[in-house]
Simulated assay, not measured.
Amino acid sequence: MTILRVLGSAAGGGFPQWNCNCRNCDGVRRGTVRATPRTQSSIALGDGDQNWIVVNASPDILAQLRSAPALQPARYPRDTGIAGVVLIDAQIDHVTGLLMLREHRQALPVYASTAVLDDLSTAFPLTRMLSYYCGLDTHTLPLDGTAFAVPPLENVALTAVPLESKAPPYSPSRNAHRLGDNIGLRIVNRQSGRHAFYAPGLARIEPHVFKELAEADVVLVDGTCWHDDELIALGFSTKTAADMGHLSQSGPGGMIETLDRLPAVRKVLIHINNTNPILDEESPQRRELEAHGIEVAYDGMEISL
């Protein structure tokens, strides 16, 4: 059995965001909005035998590990169930958690594309910084459709799927797309054949991406913003969701319309921004999702494959 556990379901900044007083953040603090706090986006994949792959190392990873006792099997005085970390991009909210794992007893296995490893060795030099601590044992992901595994989880087949989103703002390639700046992840249980597709950052539904969505048993996809101009309308930014590399849920060509085209698979939104009205469990937007058979991920959610 392969277990997919949502460690964190929010976008960068988490929910509530520390300095935000939007209706959602203020309401969850005051108890006037029915919503559940969330940490920043990450999932873990387990084989049922104390071994786990962490996909994206969020800045909240220490809190996430405390909330997931299975990832700390306590077999030795210093121990972890983490066999390796897979990165889908180099965004700060997906890689900063590597710094929190610096006490690892040996070099931490990290799997990422050439583009991501380049950013982490130059613009945001985590590989150099961590060389003074545990160090990183880096593995370059194939982008040609070849599956790979993270030992000892040989029955969990992973495939990196290049997709269109954005490199981090700090990256020299922010506005110059490189293959592998962003990937989705096909996750297959070799024994059952069931599989999931994980893409928390998704700017456009390219034909090969739609094929991945349509063939999966479970999809966990970008749920960042409800409206493309959500942050502009609130006065928080001058950028649209699309400018930041995210496809909004509502409107023509949005995520809801896309997911409606899929067969009867399990459809889950993840990487949800603190401003998104779907966080309010009593909102009309949340009811609209439910009418379309779309779930909203939450920290601690588990899916069996």
Rank of each mutant, 00 (worst) to 15 (best):
L179N: 13
G180M: 02
D181Q: 09
N182Q: 11
N182D: 12
I183L: 08
I183T: 08
G184H: 06
G184P: 01
L185Q: 01
L185N: 02
L185T: 06
I187C: 00
I187H: 01
I187F: 00
V188N: 08
V188H: 06
N189C: 14
R190P: 12
S192D: 03
S192Y: 05
S192G: 10
S192H: 03
G193F: 10
G193H: 06
R194Y: 08
R194C: 07
H195Y: 11
H195G: 09
A196L: 12
F197T: 05
F197D: 02
Y198R: 01
Y198S: 01
P200H: 00
G201W: 09
G201M: 09
L202C: 01
L202P: 00
A203W: 02
A203K: 11
A203R: 13
E206A: 13
H208L: 07
V209C: 09
F210P: 05
E212I: 10
L213D: 07
L213S: 07
A214R: 12
A214K: 11
A216G: 13
D217Y: 06
V218L: 13
V218S: 04
V219K: 08
L220W: 02
V221E: 01
V221D: 02
V221C: 07
V221I: 12
V221Q: 04
D222I: 00
G223W: 00
T224E: 11
T224C: 07
C225A: 13
C225M: 13
W226P: 10
W226E: 04
W226V: 05
H227W: 14
H227P: 06
D228Y: 00
D228R: 05
D229C: 09
L231S: 13
L231M: 14
L231G: 02
I232D: 08
I232T: 06
A233Q: 15
A233R: 15
L234W: 11
G235D: 03
F236P: 10
F236I: 14
F236Y: 15
F236E: 15
F236H: 12
S237M: 08
S237L: 02
T238V: 09
T238D: 15
K239R: 15
K239L: 15
K239D: 14
K239H: 15
T240Q: 11
A242H: 15
A242M: 13
A242R: 14
D243H: 12
M244W: 06
G245M: 11
H246L: 06
L247N: 03
L247W: 07
L247D: 02
S248R: 13
G251T: 04
G251H: 06
P252M: 08
G253W: 10
G254K: 04
I256F: 02
E257M: 02
E257S: 13
L259C: 01
D260I: 01
D260V: 04
R261Q: 12
R261M: 09
L262M: 04
P263I: 08
P263D: 05
A264Y: 08
A264G: 05
A264L: 12
V265H: 09
